[in-house]
Design a protein around this nucleic acid. Structure first.
Lengths: 193, 193
DNA sequence: CGATTTTTTGAATCATATCAACGTACGTGG
DNA sequence: CCACGTACGTTGATATGATTCAAAAAATCG
């Protein structure tokens, strides 16, 4: 899908991290597949092995899992971010979670074989692979430390200021579920501040 | 420090992930520095940039940070694991946390320049860099999801069964701080089960 | 507009934190 | 080797804050 306008966002993003030459870029475009989801469509379900990493052009995806029969939202992915179950993808193990479209979504699918092919053939893509996972890891680590070190109230305020689009686009009870509190309590927190 | 017995553990670990040839392995041994810490020594302090990744041969290290004047333990690192502030290391930004030896510790220091030199020169080390951060990321992601989806009690039991050596070696109030509850409450949880 | 979903409110209940006191283990100096 | 002091863990009583359940109000969708 070389030259497709659907690649604009991801190309701009990639070029902030590495500088592939023309051949290398073309090789990348060949492994990409465009896909659309309607609100409530599932991108991944529990038990399946996640064989892709998806880049969101538009929309919001929710990651959630069941623990003792209870559903917990573990992440939101929005425009310009990657959606995957990395644990399942990296370890080739059955996923323990779901990826669900909360809005209509446009995304790019990078398959595992495609990605591994690039890693083997091109030093620049292997490096990109390392740098991007390092970045994602940093974001994740920051999130984890906040969970440990701050109160629910602080977490909500941080989340709302870091991801205002998500707060607008998704029902509050999903955000409550993500923060580990009841919708009622979140409502009360919001009223205060 | 080629052929030093202090490299045995890390060599065994690395060879489960990639298979460097002799030249590649020697290049690695040249960037490693051995270091010892006494109990209560600091490996990293807030405000400094973390320019290393350390591999623990023995002992336990605690990562902690201050949030609104309160100290929170954000992680423990024990034998056979890597200790660093990856956020500071990767982004070259001042660290917001401390790394403290909870016991006497023996470790190997990999400097940023050493590591980057290996990445540039050897495809096998660039790949190792990607694979190891992928692994660490998976562990981290699993921890983060547990924080969101499970109760403190479950978290304690999971932690205690995953890291029994740590539970034995460190004071309980650090574990309470890591789990986000009071030492008194942890004591009561332990009595129950 | 009517139907459904989402958010808010209130009251009762439950869980955890806090504070204070006590018990125990450990190591150090006498 | 003992005694004392310090650090750590436990226990109990009370206070705080979050959850739960039920219901009403508000927002959204067809």
């Amino acid at each position: 899908m070389k030259d497709s306008p659907q690649l604009h966002k991801i190309e701009a993003f990639i070029r902030t991290i590495v500088q592939p030459n023309e051949e290398e870029w073309e090789a990348f475009t060949e492994i990409v597949r465009f896909k659309e989801l309607r609100k409530k469509d599932m991108l991944l379900e529990e038990g399946k092995i996640c064989n892709f990493i998806a880049f969101l052009n538009t929309g919001v995806i929710r990651e959630y899992a069941f623990q003792n029969g209870r559903e917990a939202t573990v992440d939101f992915v929005s425009e310009g971010q990657f959606a995957s179950d990395y644990q399942s993808f990296i370890l080739r193990s059955p996923s323990k979670q779901y990826l669900e479209a909360l809005t209509d979504v446009e995304l790019l699918i990078l398959s595992r074989e495609g990605i591994n092919g690039l890693y083997d053939k091109y030093k620049v893509w292997e490096r990109f692979g390392r740098l991007i996972i390092e970045k994602i890891f940093c974001v994740n680590e920051a999130k984890r430390k906040k969970l440990i070190a701050t109160t629910h109230e602080e977490q909500y305020r941080d989340f709302a200021s870091a991801y205002p689009q998500i707060v607008q686009q998704v029902p509050q009870y999903y955000i409550a579920s993500y923060l580990g509190l009841t919708p009622e309590h979140l409502s009360r927190i919001r009223k205060k501040g």
